[in-house]
Simulated scan of single mutants.
Amino acid sequence: MIDVAAEARVSQTTVSLVLNHADGARLSPETRQRVIKAAAKLGYQPVRRGGAPAASAATTIGFVCDELSTDPWTAIGLDGVREKAWSHGLTVTVMATRGDADMEAAALAQLAALPLAGLVYATINTRLIDAPAWASPAPLVLLNCHAAGGAFASVVPGEVAGGHAATDVLIRAGHRRIGYINGEASMEAARHRLRGYRQALATADLPFDPDLVREGNWEPLSGYEATRALMALAHPPTAIFCANDLMAVGCYEALRELGLRIPDDVAVMGYDDREIAQHLHPPLTTVLLPHFEMGSIAAEWLIDAAAGSPARPRQVKVECPIVMRKSV
């Protein structure tokens, strides 16, 4: 799906909507045709059995999440779970609790009464959580979160490696002074991406300069303000790595105001691969958050566990690949 999305210049979500014939989606006929042609060119066909659920006691996978609509990540992960489940004749039952403890307890109790193949417990932000009170023999896997002591299996993005890979792209392009605009330090994703940035510098034998690091809040305005501050340094960076694509939008605006060209004067790297990344001018080189693949792996882990297959690793870190465009 990543390859089809890149070929058609759309997001993974758009590919899924088109190839799963979601007629209610607000997509233009031209976009649908691009996706269909890209899938045909690459020989991609979603794997599914379709039809009735599998003839076994387990007919569904439960999916409990704190948020589903505030950002696209949980919905994309759910899409990965749904596709993998349906390929095995299983449906998915979804409950969003908005972090309400009483609602979560009720949701878990209701799901425990169903003929479950297993439960996916997902959070919109990657973080350490208290182990959910799961009173069912069905297996449980955590998606985009993890519990202390490995109480449950978990599937999370490889954020340190993603930050390292993004910085390495800039280093390989010849940059030696690389600014970094991070998100809020209280968030695990921000800490891990920064760690990857620092590791890449160390690997290339480049010094870490704290003046080149600015903390933002994931929103475009903070990317704009941090970029202005970085470019006001006596020795400004020749490349800026933004810890998410929305801050990169603000970075683009600040560089344009300063009369600087991307990537001729300053290269820009994003993170997330939001829909907007491909529509910036020039299109933004970024890092893909692999939520679809994470959801697919979580569902596969449950299906294997329910079938008594050999144990998988207790934590799976999924690669965050680079999406090369024109900003580096």
Rank of each mutant, 00 (worst) to 15 (best):
G196R: 07
Y197K: 06
R198D: 01
Q199F: 03
A200W: 02
A200M: 06
L201F: 02
A202N: 01
A202P: 05
P207F: 04
P207M: 10
F208W: 14
F208S: 15
D209Q: 10
P210H: 12
L212V: 04
V213A: 05
R214Q: 13
R214C: 10
E215D: 11
E215V: 15
G216N: 05
N217H: 15
N217C: 13
N217E: 14
W218T: 06
S222P: 08
S222C: 08
G223V: 03
G223Q: 02
Y224D: 00
Y224E: 03
A226Y: 03
A226F: 07
T227G: 02
R228H: 15
R228A: 14
A232P: 05
A232G: 03
P236G: 09
P236I: 11
P236V: 08
P237Q: 01
P237A: 05
T238W: 07
A239S: 09
I240M: 12
I240G: 10
F241H: 10
A243H: 09
A243C: 15
N244A: 05
N244G: 06
N244C: 10
N244M: 07
D245R: 01
M247T: 09
M247K: 04
V249P: 00
V249E: 00
G250S: 11
G250C: 11
C251D: 01
Y252S: 04
E253Q: 15
A254D: 04
L255C: 08
L255N: 09
L255A: 05
R256Y: 08
R256D: 05
E257G: 08
E257R: 09
E257W: 05
L258T: 06
G259K: 04
L260T: 09
L260Q: 12
L260S: 12
L260A: 11
R261H: 15
R261T: 14
I262S: 13
I262V: 15
I262H: 11
P263M: 13
P263A: 13
D264F: 02
D265N: 10
D265S: 10
V266H: 01
A267C: 07
Y271P: 01
D272G: 01
D273E: 13
D273T: 05
I276K: 02
A277M: 02
A277Q: 02
A277W: 00
Q278Y: 03
L280E: 08
L280C: 06
H281Q: 13
P283L: 02
L284I: 00
T286N: 03
L289D: 13
P290M: 11
F292L: 13
E293F: 00
G295Y: 01
S296G: 15
S296F: 08
S296R: 15
I297A: 12
I297C: 04
A298L: 05
A298W: 00
A299L: 11
A299I: 12
A299N: 06
E300P: 06
W301Y: 13
L302E: 00
L302K: 01
L302I: 04
L302A: 00
I303F: 02
A305F: 07
A306S: 14
A306E: 09
A306M: 11
A306W: 08
A306V: 05
A307P: 07
P310H: 00
P310F: 03
A311S: 13
A311F: 07
